[in-house]
Design a protein around this nucleic acid. Structure first.
Lengths: 400, 400
DNA sequence: CTGAAAGCGCTAACAC
DNA sequence: GTGTTAGCGCTTTCAG
């Protein structure tokens, strides 16, 4: 190996010329303890094509400079023969700019984030970027460290699709502003939690909203392009549609009240009902985990309470997530009741995988892939539309 | 800016010393047309801490060399104040090794791949690697180009979770062997399509299996660590369990016969039945798209045929995917029949999201996240167990 | 223990 | 049009 290295190196031109005698013996691959560097480099290609490094570089990557057809062909041929593949890292260092888009998600196994990721990967690919996905695994404590490695990547752009919580620590905001300062385009998925919603009615429970909306996270950081998912107004619209369908008494399976998304949906639904003159009784907003089982449990507690002679069972239940709605369906069925008939259930998201649950779920459809794609375009600064709406879809689960 | 650059540069030591006079005026950030380079560099930190670059480097990254506590503290302090974050790309170039693991999937929106991705991200994180995900979007034609960019990334390891098709082009194999040659650890998810299965019976339709199993794709490439998903034996076990449950007549919703995974499951199921003395009549293996709608259509054609006085409806149907099984359920229901009672349906995968379909699906559970994690460990060479088994789960959809 | 300096693979001035 | 060479930000010898 040293021998090979030496052969190579004897042609190496050292900036020190004559001085470089004994060191030069150890050329590429000669550094002790180094992992083998055995890929083909541009220099190899250039040598083989009989042109300079610069020409080879110009030939293989879109440089403004033109290269004579002749050399161009030779370089391409050499590259092909040698199976040359440009080292993107080195390119990035030299160019001072990467071809990486970082996507940070709460949990990639969640179909919500998976859908967004699919859209993001597609859109990024169209822009010639590769996507790196990091996951906080639902743990807010991990957000800061994840953003740390993200910033080490020096991504060209970053999309933040986190499960934001009210009153989040703002290490995160600091990290994000660092990213922005480093020149990355950043976009963040956020909710239309406060205001911005024309439904009118004063949001019940507005006092629970994080004290200072502006300090409330990533979306407040200068330079971040938010993409607001109109959870609140979508939920409000759903509420209105259900009332118009004839439903009169409601309960909410609210999920984790600290989660911004859950909060926005709850607020919006309540506001939507209020706008139609329908109130929500005390105890009808039941918190739980933000999961299928959470939905099951919350629904069960409602059923238990009614069975125990407490508040009457509402005719319709809104779960802030399709997954929670499915849990609710199961709970209802486990009590011997008929979901849809005895008690209506609506969800949110319209995750495709759940298209066949019976009864079919009324919900608010969110165009997940489009959201992901739009978010990357926002991060890249080529998308001006900063909001996406859900679409109310009424199905059998709330038919009366 | 140039002024600042100049101040910087006056200290810059050029290997050419005296010659470097007028050019040096343009220091960092001075290159024309360059995107701003405004992040903090190691040099900044070193200067601020009053130590050399080398020392700063040694202090901040686990070098074997030790650094005096004193300088160590100063460097860390400086790094903190400056919000320094090491440029991973530059590190990679200098070290000749990256901290990147590339995951190539068919479609990240598919819960199957999403589950695998989640496990992979977790395991990679534990190994200090960041994951870049690229997707072929189900298009085999894209595989080669995707692998091209992957190899430009010079990943430390790569996990291939592709929807392999029989008789695939071997551009892919070439690309993969390039990756291996470049020193990346590669692992690929594959099926126990041929042999390797103790079920005994001669696999019906073995003639359809790609001509030369060894040339049959990525798994044949030297240096690739396969992780075999025992689709075939899982399906065989399911078949056995169903027969023992009393089912006697079967049909298969086979999905796309070109997809290795689908093929393995079909073959296994047929073999499993054969091992119990049960045959599969002609026309009872119906191909379709590898999707929910494919399942719906395939099941519909079975129902149509029976209604038209063709072959009797089988008592039990095996869909090669849970998703297809759900489609089948819907088709059955749409004909006014009761799935589970009139005709049993079994799936494969046990995707969690479908836990609440009614009737609950009999299936073969695959530990998706574990598969993802295991695959990265295989790629990193720290996992010797190269196979994962599914687990038969019998539920209401095939209760008699 | 520390610093100077030679690279890593590639790009982009700058001369020719 | 092409070659030379100074960098990019970082690591790691090698000599103190």
């Amino acid at each position: 190996m040293t021998a090979t290295g030496g052969a190579e190196a004897s042609r190496a031109s050292s900036p020190l010329g004559i001085l470089a005698t004994d060191r030069v013996v150890r050329g590429r691959n000669g550094r002790r303890g180094m992992p083998e560097r055995n890929s083909v480099t541009l220099a190899d290609v250039a040598k083989r094509a009989g042109v300079s490094l610069a020409t080879a570089s110009r030939a293989l990557n879109g440089s403004a400079r033109t290269v004579r057809q002749d050399s161009l062909d030779r370089v391409h041929a050499a590259a092909l023969e040698l199976r040359y593949s440009a080292n993107l890292q080195a390119q990035a260092v030299a160019r001072g700019t990467t071809t990486t888009l970082a996507l940070v998600v709460g949990d990639i196994a969640d179909p919500y984030f998976a859908g967004i990721a699919a859209g993001a990967i597609r859109a990024a690919g169209e822009a010639g970027l590769v996507v790196t996905i990091t996951s906080t695994e639902g743990d807010p404590a991990r957000e800061a460290s994840v953003l740390g490695v993200v910033s080490g990547l020096r991504p060209r752009a970053v999309v933040l699709a986190l499960s934001r919580r009210l009153g989040a620590s703002d290490e995160v905001a600091a990290a994000v502003s660092g990213l922005v300062a480093a020149g990355a385009g950043v976009s963040a998925l956020v909710s239309d939690l406060v205001g911005a919603d024309p439904v009118g009615a004063d949001p019940v429970g507005a006092d629970l909203v994080g004290a200072d909306p502006d300090a409330e996270g990533v979306e407040g950081v200068r330079g971040v392009q938010p993409l607001v998912i109109r959870n609140r107004s979508g939920a409000a619209a759903l509420a209105g549609a259900l009332v118009e369908q004839g439903h009169e008494s409601f309960a909410l399976l609210a999920g984790d009240p600290q989660l911004v998304t859950a909060r926005a949906r709850v607020d919006g639904f309540v506001a939507g009902l209020a706008a139609h003159g329908v109130g929500v009784p005390d105890g009808a907003i039941v918190p739980s985990e933000f999961s299928r089982d959470g939905g099951y449990r919350a629904m069960s507690s409602l059923l238990d309470a009614a069975a125990a002679g407490g508040p009457a069972l509402p005719r319709c239940v809104f779960a802030v997530t399709d997954l929670m709605a499915v849990g609710a369906l199961a709970a209802i069925r486990d009590r011997g009741l008929v979901p849809g008939a005895d008690v209506g259930v609506a969800g949110f998201d319209d995750v495709r995988m759940l298209a066949d649950v019976v009864p079919a779920l009324s919900t608010v459809r969110l165009p997940l892939e489009e959201i992901g794609a739009r978010a990357v375009r926002r991060a890249l600064g080529v998308e001006t539309d900063g909001a996406v709406d859900g679409e109310v879809v009424l199905r059998a689960s709330t038919a009366r």
